[in-house]
Amino acid sequence: MSSQNASAPYYFVPGPSKWPLLAGLSLLLTMAGASAWVNDVSWGPAANLVGLAGIITVLYFWFGDAIGESEKGLYSQRIDHSYRWSMSWFIFSEVMFFGAFFGALFYARSITMPWLGDLDHKILWPDFSAHWGNAGPAGTIQEFKTMGPFPIPTLNTALLLTSGLTLTISHHALRAGHRGKTAFWLFLTILLGATFMGFQAFEYMHAYSELNLKLTSGIYGSTFFMLTGFHGFHVTMGAIMLSVVLYRVLRGHFTPDHHFAFEGAAWYWHFVDVVWLALYVVVYWM
């Protein structure tokens, strides 16, 4: 939300919309296509891509409607509160999402692995070594090397921490009414996020080609790529959100007092930064 109008409705209720239905159908097609794809069904890849294209299209027009409503002065302070609570609960759901993956990593590394390596299980798997990054008790996994914290993960940590700083500077510039400075520091934040993703893509190529580390490399490979991959996806989504905010900054949609779209995207970006710090310590160091 960018602006508020004293004469706006007590609580603006939009008219009937086709976007929720189309979003649900697109999500259904995306997941059906993904399920078919991983099971080598021929129509899976095409259905997945069509579903993703549908989601992107729906989001573009749906958010466009919301932006248009805001610019028309239809939003009051109560709508602002609704957006803030909605974004807060969305980020909370993301906390639970990553909590599940961190929980799976903790269970596998701190509970299951010592249990499989105890004296009772030596009869079943005498060659099993209870160290993180092993090839499993059955010996069916190809040998691989684990990923260390240097140099790319550490560089990426510096990039994300710096991006949090540049985003904060941009926010202060917006509150001070300096549109040019706001746009510059926001663009720099997006550039740092894009650089992060470039380094992560290089890290994945290094993992596959030189370490033989893949998603199929046992529980280590599964948890590594699930955590880092989903985080990278969130960085990508955050960069897209900030890019939309940058476009709106350049269009003059925001005022120093009313700019929740900027704040909501900033909340999300800082959340992604915090998740990476936890991931950097738990996945790469421990």
Rank of each mutant, 00 (worst) to 15 (best):
F128C: 06
A207V: 11
V274T: 09
M87Q: 09
S243G: 07
V41C: 06
W62N: 08
H259G: 02
P149M: 07
K145I: 02
A32Q: 06
I56H: 11
D118K: 07
A104N: 03
F61R: 14
A207R: 12
E210N: 12
H131A: 02
L174T: 00
K214D: 14
F260M: 04
T140S: 10
S35K: 06
N39E: 08
L155S: 05
A266I: 06
R251K: 10
P114C: 01
E94A: 05
H231S: 04
A194R: 14
K214E: 12
Y60C: 03
T168R: 08
I91E: 09
Q77K: 15
A138V: 15
G148V: 09
R78S: 07
R179L: 05
Q4Y: 05
H121N: 05
W185T: 09
V38S: 13
A6R: 11
G264T: 10
L161T: 05
A207D: 03
A104E: 03
S82H: 13
H121R: 11
H171F: 14
A104C: 07
V95P: 02
F230G: 01
R84K: 15
L167G: 01
F199W: 13
A201W: 12
V244S: 11
W125P: 01
I240Q: 12
F61H: 12
A261D: 08
S209A: 14
F199E: 09
F150T: 12
V50M: 06
D273C: 13
P16S: 07
S70I: 01
A265Q: 04
T228G: 02
L191N: 01
V283S: 02
H259S: 08
Y75N: 13
Y280W: 15
L215I: 15
I55S: 08
F225M: 08
T182S: 04
R179T: 12
G133H: 02
G68S: 04
M241T: 13
N39M: 15
